[in-house]
Structures are given as C-alpha cells and as structure tokens.
C-alpha cells in the first residue's frame, strides 16, 4: 500500500476543510494512506516572504524537519501556496550554505540537521496522483458518469511558478489537472486563463482590485462554456467563490459559476457519499448545477440511443 506523509496547511483546517476531507477520501479510495505530520505549523505564506527573509525559510523548514524526523522522504501537500513555499525553501536551503546557517541559528537547531532536509521532497497531490498512480488505477474507481460536465481547469499562480524551482508543469499551459479531469470522465473546455492570477494574496487589503481580477477569470470560464471551475488551491477557491457575491451585489456580473476542488470532482466520479464531498460549504451552490447537467446528459444519451434504435428498426423494415 502506498503511504505518504501529509501536510494539510492552515486553510485546510478552516475555509477549505472540504479540500482536506476529499483529499483523504480519494486517497483512501485509491488504496493509499496519508499520515498527517505531527504538530505541523504555518508555512508563512506570502506575508513571511514579503516581510522577513529568514522567517520565510525558517517556517517551512520546521515542517520539513518534522517530516525528516518522522522518517519521511516525501511530503504530500494539497495547498498550492504551502507547496510553493515548502519547495522554494527546500531548493534554497540546499543551494545556499550561508542561508542554511542563518536559518539553523534562528530555528535553534544544529546546522547539520538542515543539511539533510534536501532528502525531503515536497510534492503536490496532483503530481502524486499523476506519477504514482496509473490512469487505469484512477479509471477503475470511477463509477459515476460525469461526461455531461464541462470544466474550466484553473491552476492559478503558485502551482506552476517559479517553474525552475517547482518543476511542476508547463507554466503557461499546464495539463496535469486537465488530464485528471478527463481521466475521471468529465470534459475540459479550452480555458486561456488557466494560470492568470486571482490576486488572493491581497484579498484582505485590496478587495476591489481582487474582485476585478476574479471577474475576468470567471467571465472567461463562462464564455468558454464551462459549467464549473475546478481548482487546486484553497486561496483561489475562496476568492473565486466568495467574490462572486460581491460582484453580484455590485451588479458587475449577472451569472454565477460554482468553483470546486479537483478532489471533490474526483470524489463525485468515485461515487463517494455526497455529504462527505462538502459541496454544501460553497458560497455559490454546486449541486443544482451538477444535477442539472448530468440529468441533461442522460436525457441526450437516451434520446441518441432511442434515435439510433428507431433508425435500425426502420432499416430492418
């Protein structure tokens, strides 16, 4: 059985609890286990690297160090922001001996403890699902037909940039999430705003600017014909979902589009109990859209089959 050390991150304890729940559910379905690392702490996110260089490395390093002490050499991460910070820290600590010394000093640990941190590789769960599991592994668990759903895959910034450090996927046109969505049977629309920024790091302090960026992304998704936007980052999800309420009340948009995590979509395909998928936590309702689109797809399919049957009958006559 595959087993991974797991770092949920702060958002997945609060706003994005459903991302955590569904991540665990789909790993269980796939027969893999996630072991949450003991007493993990915040990675510092944008605020740390904006204001304090040493802190921005020391905070993620603490979590890498915990993983190391648990005997782990990989750390599975769901949150795109945490993934980026952990990866940047691991990269720079490995490269820069002087930095390593300074970080060890503020962490009050022996420098040699940090030397071995390069053995711990932070991995985003999208990468794990793509590389450690075969398409067949995932396909064999799909029991619900999602072919009626059209999805705009939104990656945002922190999964793909900076590409030379994260080594995740193509920074302009990533495909990892597209492929997972197709594997579980939904269809993907051509979405040119895959990696545009939603401005989530300024969501507290510059809400008006952020609302504008959000508007561009969701409008593009709607124009591309998407029924849902699928994301892999708790900041993007909260932002794209919640800011639609502001945009609606300011009469800046006259539509809505649900925003869900790719793990929720996978859970839906795997036939996991809807209560466990946490769709009720979205600000923009999800289930009505899904039910409507899937029912419509069934109707179309039945109609096609019926037409085909009638035409065969006629041919027979």
């Amino acid at each position: 059985m595959k087993s991974y050390h797991y770092f949920p991150g702060c958002s997945l304890e609060g706003m994005a609890k459903e991302f955590d729940q569904t991540t665990r559910e789909i790993f269980t379905t796939l027969g893999a286990s996630l072991k949450e690392i003991e007493d993990w702490s915040c990675c510092g996110a944008t605020s740390a690297h904006f204001t304090d260089r040493l802190l921005s490395y020391a905070l993620p390093a603490r979590n890498l160090n915990i993983t190391k002490k648990c005997g782990g050499n990989e750390l599975a991460v769901s949150c795109a922001a945490c993934f980026a910070r952990l990866k940047v820290t691991s990269y720079n600590l490995q490269k820069d001996a002087k930095l390593r010394g300074e970080v060890a000093e503020v962490m009050e640990v022996e420098e040699k403890e940090l030397n071995s941190l390069s053995d711990v590789v932070p991995r985003h769960i999208l990468e794990i699902l793509t590389k450690d599991f075969s398409v067949e592994d995932i396909k064999s668990k799909v029991i619900r037909d999602l072919s009626g759903l059209k999805i705009a895959p939104y990656y945002g910034c922190l999964l793909v940039r900076p590409p030379q450090i994260l080594e995740f996927d193509d920074p302009e046109n990533p495909m990892i999430m597209d492929n997972i969505i197709k594997t579980v049977g939904a269809s993907v629309v051509d979405f040119p705003f895959k990696t545009e920024c939603c401005g989530a790091s300024l969501t507290l302090s510059k809400a008006d600017i952020v609302a504008n960026l959000t508007k561009k992304i969701i409008t593009e998704a709607r124009d591309a014909g998407a029924d849902l936007i699928v994301v892999a980052c708790p900041l993007c999800q909260t932002n794209l979902d919640m800011r639609q309420l502001d945009l609606q009340s300011d009469n800046l948009i006259d539509f809505e589009i649900p925003v869900i995590y790719f793990t929720q979509l996978m859970g839906l395909a795997f036939g996991i109990d809807e209560k466990k998928l946490g769709f009720n936590r979205n600000m923009i309702a999800v289930l009505p859209t899904i039910k409507e689109k899937l029912a419509a797809a069934v109707v179309t399919k039945v109609a096609t089959v019926a037409t085909a049957a009638t035409s065969t009958e006629r041919e027979g006559e």
């Binding site: 609060g14 702490s41 996110a45 605020s47 204001t51």
Partner: peptide, 16 residues
C-alpha cells in the same frame, strides 16, 4: 497591516 496581522496571528497560534 494585513501582513503584520497575519504573522502575529501565526506567531500566537502556530497556524492561521
């Protein structure tokens, strides 16, 4: 202010 409060919050709880 947002960055300052974020870090104070983290310092106090260990998580946001």
């Amino acid at each position: 202010l947002a960055h300052k409060l974020f870090l104070e919050n983290v310092k106090f709880f260990g998580r946001v």
